[in-house]
Structure formats: C-alpha cells, structure tokens
Amino acid sequence: MVSSRSILFAAIGIIIAYTFGYRMLIRGQYKPKNCVFCNALDRIVYEDDEFIAFHDIKPDAALHLLVIPRVHFGTIKELKPEDLPMIGRMQDIGKRLLEEQGFSGDNARFGFHRPPFNSIHHLHMHCLGLPFKPKRAEKMFPKNGSRWFMTTAQLVEKMSAETAP
C-alpha cells in the first residue's frame, strides 16, 4: 500500500526535477535540457552514430579535442563495468584523431575530470596533443592523474577491477 507521504515525496521530486529542467532517460540517467554537449555543436572533427569529437572551446594544448558519447552520462561516477567498451572506443577515436595530426606516445594524453571537478556534466574525454598551452595547463591534466583528473588508463583499470570476482 502506498502512503500519502510517499506520494507527497514523489510529487516534490517531480516538481524539483521539472524546475531544474531534467528528464528521465534510459538506465535512470538524467539529461539536462540545457546540456551544451547534448545540443548542436560546432567545431566537430569526427562523428558517428555513437560518438562525437570536437575541438575544445578553450584549448589547453597544441591540440585539445573532446570525445563524447551521444548518450548522456553525467560523469565517470555513473559508469558501470559494462561501459568499458564505450570508454575503449572513445580512446580509439581520440588516439586516431591525435595521430592523424602527429601526436602520439608522450605527446598525447587522454583522460577525464573527476567529480566534483567537472565544468560540463556530460561525460567527455580530453584528448590532448602536447605541448600544453599555456604551460600551467599541465597541472590540470597531470600525466599520472590527480584528485581532479583521471587518465583513461586509470579509469579502465578501476572499472576492470570492479568486474573482477
């Protein structure tokens, strides 16, 4: 039996969600109506049915691309082990795009901001062709990760450990 208190809390939740412009998506994800990555983008360098890659509006390196899934994920905290193939595909796309421009090995860096250090709450992988511009940007995207930045390799390792028995 559903209590009137449960109905009240559900109604309050719906009002709050509507007020802040959220709508439900598959897998319980929320998609803000005003997500800049879910709406029309420019500066696109690659797109397919699942992913889009584009130039960062405020580049921190000689080449600074973002690879995003078309399906809205807020941050890396929402990822599940079954999302590993998606991360691998994002890495493959970013790596290929950087290599086409002459960036590879130590001249390339890939990773994600860790919550709460996300400026845009739509999963996006930074693909950086070094050197950093400005030089201080190296502190934002450290080679071995940090509290605010997780390399793609670290994310894959963490997600793989979650699948291990």
Rank of each mutant, 00 (worst) to 15 (best):
S119V: 10
R109S: 09
P116L: 14
L84K: 12
S160K: 15
R89A: 04
L66G: 02
P115C: 11
Q29L: 10
I87V: 14
R5I: 15
V2L: 12
L25E: 02
R147G: 12
Y22K: 03
L65A: 04
K77I: 12
F117N: 13
M1G: 13
P116I: 12
N107C: 02
M140V: 15
I26Y: 00
R136P: 04
G111I: 14
F132R: 00
K33G: 06
K77V: 11
L63F: 03
E50M: 00
F149I: 15
L8Q: 12
L41F: 06
M125H: 03
I87S: 04
F112E: 05
D106N: 10
L66T: 06
G28T: 10
R43W: 06
M140N: 13
K80M: 12
F112W: 11
S4H: 11
I44W: 02
V67I: 11
H64K: 01
F117A: 09
A11M: 09
E138I: 13
F117D: 07
Y30F: 14
F149H: 13
F51W: 04
L65Y: 05
A40N: 03
R89Q: 09
A53I: 14
I44N: 00
E47K: 09
D83L: 09
A137K: 06
L8P: 08
N118S: 03
P116D: 07
H72M: 08
T19C: 10
L123W: 14
L79G: 11
E78G: 13
M90I: 07
Q154R: 07
G21D: 09
K80N: 05
N118W: 02
Q91G: 10
P32V: 10
E78F: 03
F132C: 05
M86F: 02
S104R: 05
Y22P: 03
A17V: 14
H122P: 03
H124W: 10
F103S: 02
D49T: 09
I16A: 02
G28W: 06
F73G: 04
K80F: 04
D56N: 11
L79A: 03
R23E: 08
A53E: 04
L84S: 09
R5N: 14
G105I: 07
F110Q: 00
A164R: 15
D56A: 08
Q29M: 11
S4E: 15
S4V: 11
M86S: 00
R70E: 01
A108C: 06
A137Q: 06
R70L: 03
F73D: 02
G13D: 12
H72N: 02
I57E: 08
N39K: 02
Q29V: 09
I120T: 15
M1V: 14
M125F: 11
D83K: 06
F132N: 00
F117P: 04
H64E: 01
D49H: 13
L65N: 00
G28N: 11
K31P: 00
S146P: 05
P116T: 09
E157T: 13
F103W: 00
I12L: 09
F132M: 04
D83H: 14
E78D: 15
D92E: 15
D42S: 04
L65F: 08
R89L: 13
